[in-house]
Every structure is written in structure tokens, then in C-alpha cells.
Design a protein around this nucleic acid. Structure first.
Length: 646
RNA sequence: GCCGUUGUAGCUCAGGGGUAGAGCACUUCCUUGGUAAGGAAGAGGUCAGGGGUUCAAAUCCCCUCAACGGCUCCA
């Protein structure tokens, strides 16, 4: 008999050779029908494999992340089986589960595969699923594995096998399809009840752009047909929050082909929103000891030769600007750091001056690849809420902590909860590509991790993701359709202080090199506004909203009074517009609701006589009658409350 | 930059080898109203740009540009 511990702490005795599936059946038949895989001593395995003694077992269903990904991984095999049947001779590369579904990279060898092919693949997948074909695991020798795929003529699988050790190679077979796979898999294809191919895209083999481009087929499956329907509705809902759509609808920004691709034009309402965010940060930064500076939009080529950016990025940048003066060259600035280094160098610095914090809403231009441009999140001209902190090595940790506090303050004010702090450190193996002393790196990497922990950040550590000049901490958030973007960033830099020969005089009367910290809590105004739009689905918090109040005269006779109310509100620092179109109130309310204006003030005969307004809140309806002054006070109190607590 | 899809009015979209369509928005007029769409008329397009095939191209073909979905990249 075997003793098996379950997640609830109970221990069950089962016969030798019992699988997780059989264990589930002993607990309840319903559970057995839903078990997709099992976590045995922390490792996810096939539910059909015999359990070892004294194992801790968690039965995985659709409700577990690992259960989901097992189903999707198996679904990738199912899709591969269908593709192989429908398109004989296709070569299969890899097919992993992803966050929402799975994909398979396929080499169709020049034959087209488009959306029109989707439905027949889905149909065949479901047909094969209904056959309830078991996923059968088989250990094979490297030689046999090579023989199998040589026979099949699949060079991608052969390449994968090359990297594997003899003795660790397994095949999984379901129906007529066998794949090289580590597993685990669901018991049989019958668990898959709904399948949908989502899209096709190109993807380089092994992610290397020098390799052949394969066709990546994205798909998703579910154990219940209704869940697929739900998922598709969700996807549609998410698309409605897309900042590109809302930015257009709300009149925030615009792209013009004539201006150029990736160069956003900020419309009045978008400018208002952005300026308000800048002001908010400016105030916070002033409190945190930053000194605003302003630098030009161009800099001489020599500046970037000094910084090293010319050598590294020059060829891929907007090309240098030539002047009538022979040999003179300027570049559009791709970052603000070199300018700020020169500000540091403007006068001799003492250790007593440090830390020095120079901040600037600095607009920069980067020649991003065409295929990379994306709404406001990836553009060619953008404004960083940049600052550079120059400090002593001993001050690094405290300064990073203060930057994190600032970022958290902003996120809290805007109610961003779903973010992840990514700590990017050196590649532990390949260390020669990093500049700066081992000692400083050690100290800095440790400092970043310690501060991140002290601040209670939800952190992931990525090795090899550090910049060549220093480790960094990035705040990652997701957009409406699940893509990850970096917003706030803190980066240590040992390179530029060296290149610009930055120094300060220490208490020992010796020259020392300061450490430089790059940081941008928003990341860039463009990207931050994009994420903010999606975060609040265009319904901005009242304090940020470009149009807080819209005044709706009942008829044209009250337009004058409406304007008077608007002026009064303006004096109280409330942003109000009058809808003086020749329409009925119902129509005006509808328009204001769709424009996501928080407060609507209906004014007519009674209000005009009483110097009052009839207020209505978006999504809530009528609030009753207020004097103009009371209404203004109410709005201002609401705004003050939003900004107070934090 | 690479693979794929798309490009028709300000917006959302229909149409499709034979004189360009709808709804909303816009302008004018009527209406002067009370909490999510009042009515009528009008104006608006080299069908992304360029080239080709054809008696005839918005429609078919080629190139370019842009947007979209990914890949690669992101100082």
C-alpha cells in the first residue's frame, strides 16, 4: 500500500500502482471526470502514471493554472494531428501552451495557410477529440528518436533532439500522431470540447531572425463549449478598452500619415490630460527633491560619440542633421542622459551636493522599426518623465528606495494594482559584456533586490536582462488585450559617469566617480496615457478628466445662463463645457454619457431663476438640485479627497 | 526589418469590371423642449498613392505607403 498526502492535509492509503486518475475515482466520480493532470511532489505529471509512495498529490483540473496549460499543451498536439492530416507533409516545430491557449509553429513550406482554413482545422480537431484518443507516453532512445523523425523528414524535431540527452527523451502518441514531448498530457482527447483558431502570424524558428520564418498558428480550447463563448465575449470587451479606439473616440490623440508614422499628435483634450499628469508628477518630484532642468531637442554628434550611443545605435537612429557648416552634425536626441551629464559637469561638485536629482519632461526621438510601432505604446517621438540622480555608491540603495516610493505613490493614486516589478540582473555566465567593477555590480544588484523586497513588491528576477551599463528594475503592466508593457523604470548606470568623466570631491578631498540612476515613473507620457486609458476604459478619475462637467441647457433660451454657470465653475478651477447644440436634453445627456463626462448639469427656467443647477452623474442618474456654489464645492471636495489620502 | 491581413465620406461599415452607398457626425431650416437618439433639406469621396491589364478599373495584377495580428528589436 502507498500513503498519499492530499492538499487538505489528509493521507490516503492506496494500492501499489495506483495512478492519480484512479485516486481521483476513489475520491469521487465527478472529480475523476475533471482531472486533467496531477501535481506529484510539486511536479506536474500525467494523471495516468503510477504514484510513488509517500507522495504529496494535487489533482489538477481546469481550475488550476497547470491543469489549463496541460489541456492546452495536449490541444497543441491535437491541432498538429489535424494539420498533418489536412496538409500532408507539413513540418512541425514547437507547440507550447501560452497564457491564453497555445500555438504551434508550422512550416507549411510555402503553401498558404490563412483564416479561411481555420474552420476545417477546428472541425477536424473536434472530430478527433470525440474519438477520446489516449495520450500514450513512451520513453525512447536518442537513436530511435532520430530514426523516427529522419524517416518523417522533420528537421525541426531533429534539431530539438540534438540538444537532448539520451535517456530523457519521450514521445507522446494520440490517435495517428506522435510528437517529441516531455509532457505531461491530459488522459485523452475527449476532454477537449471546444476549439478555436485565433490567428496566424510569422515567427522565426527558435526566435532568431536569421532563421527561417515559420507560420505560428494560435488557438485556444476549452473543456466546455460555453466557456469558449464566454472567452470570445471577453476578448470583444477587451477590444473596446483599446487605447487606440478610445483615444480616437474621446478626441485625445491622432496620427497623421503626412506627419509621419509613430509621431502622435496630441489633441486639446489629450494635451489637457497629459499636462495634468505632468503637473501632478512635477509636484511630487519637487517634494522628493528633484530639480527641473531643460535641455535642447538636438545635440551634437560628438555628444553621442562620448556617450557611446553613436557607436551602438547610430546606424539605426534618425540620421544626423547636417548644417551649412561643413562637417557639423547634430542628432535628434534619443535620450536625455548625455545632456544631463553635461549639466552635472557644469560646475565642480562636492559630496555635500549629492544626491543631485535633475528632472525633465524630455522629448526624444528613436527610429523604431516599422513593424514595432503600436498606438501610443510604441512610437518614434515621445516624452520621458525622465530624471537622473547622481549619488555616491553608498546612497544608491536609499535613492532606489525613494524612486520606488514615488512610483508606488503614482500607481496608488491612479489605482494601478496589477503590476509586476521585474529585476534585471547580469547573465551569470557571460559577464564580460558588462561595464563597471564587479564590486559595484554586486552592491547594486543586491541593493535593488533588497529594496524591492523591503518595499513589498511582487518581483520577478530576470538574469541576463540587465543593460550592459547596470542592473534595472522595471514596473510591468498589461494592456487591455494582455500585452505586457514596461512603465516605470529605475536603472543604475556605471557607464556614462565614466564616459563623461563625472566626478565629485569627497570628504577625503579626493575625486570620486558618482553613480548615475536613470528613472522614469511613467516611463513615457505616451505609454502611460495609453495604459491609463485602458486601465479606466476611458473613464478617467475626476481630477484628471479633461471635461469634468457638461452643462446642458434645456433650450437655446438658457444658453446664456449655462455660459454663466460655466464661467463660475471655471473660476473654481472646474473644467466645464456648455452643450449649446439645438437638441433636446435627452440627446444631450446621451452624448455626454458617451463622451464619459462625469457630471451633467441640466439648466432651464427653474434653475435660471434660482441660480441653481440640476446635477446628474454619469452612470448614476439624477442627483437633484444644487446651488452653483454648492455644486462647485462638491466637485472640488471630491477631487481634493482623491488626492489627499495618498 | 520579417511573415500574414487590411485600406471606400470625419467615424463605423456595405458594395464591387460599366457615372459611388448607408448610419452617425457636419451645415441650414423647422421645432424651444426637463434626464440616454425630435423632424426636414443639404454638403461631403481621384474608393491610400503610383504603375499595369482592359473599349472601360474603386473592383483584376504589380510596386510603394500606412494600419492591424504576431516575430525580431526596444539606449
Amino acid at each position: 500500500m502507498l500513503n498519499i498526502s492530499l492538499p487538505d492535509g489528509s493521507v490516503r492509503s492506496v494500492e501499489e500502482g495506483t495512478s492519480a486518475m484512479q485516486l481521483a475515482a476513489q475520491i469521487s466520480e465527478g472529480l475523476a471526470r475533471n482531472v486533467l493532470a496531477a501535481e506529484v511532489n510539486g511536479v506536474v505529471v500525467d494523471a495516468s502514471r503510477p504514484l510513488p509512495d509517500n507522495a504529496t498529490v494535487k489533482l489538477l483540473t481546469w481550475n488550476d493554472e497547470n491543469g489549463k496549460s496541460t489541456l492546452w499543451h495536449s490541444s497543441a498536439h491535437l491541432m498538429a494531428e489535424a494539420l498533418e492530416a489536412l496538409y500532408p507533409g507539413v513540418k512541425l516545430a514547437i507547440g507550447p501552451p501560452i497564457e491564453n491557449g497555445f500555438y504551434y509553429d508550422v512550416d507549411f513550406e510555402g503553401k498558404p495557410f490563412t483564416q479561411e482554413d481555420f474552420s476545417k482545422v477546428e472541425k477536424l480537431m473536434l472530430e478527433l477529440a470525440r474519438q477520446k484518443n489516449e495520450f500514450v507516453r513512451k520513453e525512447v532512445s536518442k537513436a530511435d528518436a532520430i530514426a523516427y523523425f529522419t524517416e518523417k523528414g522533420d528537421q525541426y524535431k531533429l534539431e530539438l533532439i540534438e540538444g537532448l540527452q539520451d535517456g530523457e527523451i519521450t514521445f507522446y502518441t494520440q490517435g495517428n500522431f506522435t510528437d517529441l514531448c516531455r509532457g505531461p498530457h491530459i488522459p485523452n482527447t475527449g476532454f477537449i470540447k471546444a476549439a478555436k483558431l485565433m490567428n496566424v502570424a510569422g515567427a522565426y524558428w527558435r526566435g532568431d531572425e536569421k532563421n527561417k520564418m515559420l507560420t505560428r498558428v494560435y488557438a485556444i480550447t476549452f473543456p466546455k463549449a460555453a466557456e469558449l463563448e464566454e472567452y470570445l465575449v471577453q476578448v470583444e470587451e477587451a477590444k473596446k478598452r483599446d487605447h487606440r479606439k478610445l483615444g480616437k473616440e474621446l478626441g485625445l490623440f491622432h496620427f497623421s500619415q503626412r506627419v509621419g508614422s509613430g509621431l502622435p499628435l496630441w489633441l486639446p483634450k489629450g494635451t489637457d490630460l497629459r499636462t495634468r499628469l505632468q503637473n501632478f508628477l512635477t509636484v511630487a518630484q519637487k517634494k522628493a527633491g528633484y530639480q527641473p532642468v531643460i535641455t535642447p531637442h538636438i545635440g551634437s554628434k560628438e555628444l553621442y560619440e562620448t556617450s557611446g550611443h553613436w557607436a551602438k545605435y547610430g546606424a539605426d537612429s534618425f540620421q544626423p542633421i547636417h548644417t551649412p557648416q561643413e562637417g557639423e552634425m547634430y542628432m535628434l536626441k534619443p535620450m536625455n542622459c548625455p545632456h544631463h551629464c553635461e549639466i552635472f559637469n557644469a560646475e565642480p561638485r562636492s559630496y555635500k551636493d549629492l544626491p543631485l536629482r535633475f528632472s525633465e519632461f524630455g522629448t526624444v526621438y528613436r527610429y523604431e522599426q516599422t513593424g514595432e510601432l503600436h498606438g501610443l505604446t510604441r512610437v518614434r517621438g515621445f516624452t520621458q518623465d525622465d530624471a537622473h540622480i547622481f549619488c555616491t555608491p553608498d546612497q544608491v540603495k536609499e535613492e532606489i528606495g525613494k524612486v520606488i516610493d514615488l512610483v508606488l505613490y503614482i500607481f496608488k493614486t491612479l489605482n494601478f494594482q496589477d503590476f509586476l516589478a521585474q529585476v534585471s540582473l547580469r547573465d551569470p555566465i557571460n559577464r564580460e559584456k558588462y561595464i563597471g567593477s564587479e564590486e559595484n555590480w554586486e552592491k547594486a544588484e543586491l541593493a535593488i533586490q533588497e529594496v524591492a523586497n523591503e518595499k513589498g513588491l511582487r518581483t520577478v528576477v530576470e538574469y541576463g536582462e540587465a543593460a550592459f551599463y547596470g542592473p534595472k528594475l522595471d514596473f510591468m503592466v498589461r494592456d487591455a488585450i494582455g500585452r505586457k508593457w514596461q512603465l516605470g523604470t529605475v536603472q543604475l548606470d556605471y557607464n556614462l559617469p565614466e564616459r563623461f568623466q563625472l566626478e565629485y570631491t569627497g570628504s577625503d578631498n579626493q575625486k570620486h566617480r558618482p553613480v548615475m540612476i536613470h528613472r522614469a515613473p511613467f516611463g513615457s507620457m505616451e505609454r502611460f496615457v495609453a495604459i491609463l486609458i485602458e486601465h479606466c476604459a476611458g473613464q478617467f478619475p475626476l481630477w484628471l478628466s479633461p471635461e469634468q462637467v457638461r452643462i446642458l441647457p434645456v433650450s437655446e433660451k438658457y444658453n446664456e445662463y449655462a455660459k454663466k454657470v460655466a464661467n463660475t465653475l471655471e473660476i473654481s478651477d472646474i473644467r466645464a463645457l456648455v452643450d449649446d447644440t439645438n437638441e433636446k436634453v435627452g440627446k444631450k445627456i446621451r452624448e455626454a454619457e458617451l463622451a464619459k463626462v462625469t457630471y451633467m448639469l441640466v439648466v432651464g427656467e427653474t434653475e435660471m431663476l434660482a441660480n441653481s443647477v440640476s446635477a446628474r452623474k454619469k452612470g448614476e442618474g439624477d442627483l437633484g438640485v444644487f446651488s452653483v456654489e454648492d455644486f462647485a464645492t462638491m466637485v472640488n471636495d471630491e477631487v481634493a479627497n482623491m488626492l489627499k489620502e495618498i
